[in-house]
Amino acid sequence: MTPEQAAHQAWRVEAGSPPDSTDLTHERVTVVVVMYNSGPLLADFVTSLEEGLAGVEFELVAVDNASPDDSAEIMETIAPSATIVRAQRNGGYAAGINLGVAAAGPHTAILVVNSDVRLGRNCVAQLLTRLRRPGVGIAVPRLVDGEGQVIDSMRREPSVFRAFCDAIIGAERAGRRALGEVITDRRQYEQEQTTDWAEGSTQLISAECWRVCGPWDESFFLYSEETEYDLRARDLGFSTIFVPSAGAIHLEGGSGISDTLWSLQVVNRVRFYRRRHGRLATVMFWLATFVRESTRAALGRQNSRAAARALMTPRYLRATAGPGSVRSKEGQEE
């Protein structure tokens, strides 16, 4: 049995108990998946939708971000009822999401999901029941990786203090002590709770939240777009809720990323922080981030060495990353 099959089987047994008696007959979910060189992932992705959206009416909108492979043709074959949107250019993850929502029919909620996610049984029904609570605009599931290990998907709002804690004692230790940005205390992943933001591979967004908040910010080609959206939603009165009874597998959630993608992630964190804070705070946040990456570079981490160089290059901090910067299939997936 492959790691993917083992993890999926575990979720079939452990996660996604039937939701309460809440009537979901008036719900209609638009599932938006952004494809970029996603062909090998699509068959299993589509298969998981039936189980993950059991009891829920849904439509699938698949956006192909100018893939060099035949992702669009594969999706047409395995999901003939899906709406296929062919982008004219690789505009990034947020741009693909926005194209998908623009092409959707009437809906009460939008499921933004990666093609490397496998939804657990009754996942979306569980999330929908939470979206009905006053003030909730986004609901996210408990994620595991391809080995069945829980992914630290909940986040606290970025701050200078948290960035320095991550840099000095490490993200894992800082997170366990509620000092860092990433929530790494595994006990927290057994509790239903609000979170400042969550990783963007699987997010259910209410239609009302989308109407008030608007589309995702396309200036972030990849990384920090979900941070921006979830915190913008919070600012406008819509919280993000973590639902451990809803389960999903993110196959690449625990894997490493290339030097280029890591640099993009690090730089976009600084760019995002600058959007919400003044010059002095941004300089301090940049410094904390540079300390973290340069320290790890000194310990031999190649991707941190690349990120430290990018942080010292003003044009990277100013510019919006484009398709020329990201050449792997990861370029469209969180």
Rank of each mutant, 00 (worst) to 15 (best):
G148V: 12
R186Y: 09
Q149W: 09
A174T: 00
S159W: 05
V150D: 07
S159V: 05
G170P: 03
P158E: 06
D196I: 12
E172V: 12
I151Q: 01
A198H: 11
A171C: 12
A163Q: 14
Q193I: 02
G148R: 03
Y189K: 13
D166N: 13
G146C: 08
E157C: 12
R186H: 06
A198P: 04
P158Y: 05
Y189M: 04
D196V: 01
A163R: 11
R186W: 08
A198N: 05
D166W: 05
R162Y: 14
L179Q: 02
C165Y: 10
R187I: 13
Q188N: 10
I168D: 04
I169Q: 02
T194M: 12
V182R: 00
R162N: 12
A163Y: 12
A171F: 05
R162E: 08
I151V: 09
I183W: 07
I205G: 04
Q149E: 11
I151Y: 01
W197Q: 08
G200Y: 02
E208P: 03
F164E: 07
M154Q: 05
R173L: 14
D152Y: 05
E181G: 02
A198M: 10
I205A: 04
T184K: 09
C165G: 00
A171N: 07
V182L: 14
A174Y: 04
G200A: 02
S159D: 07
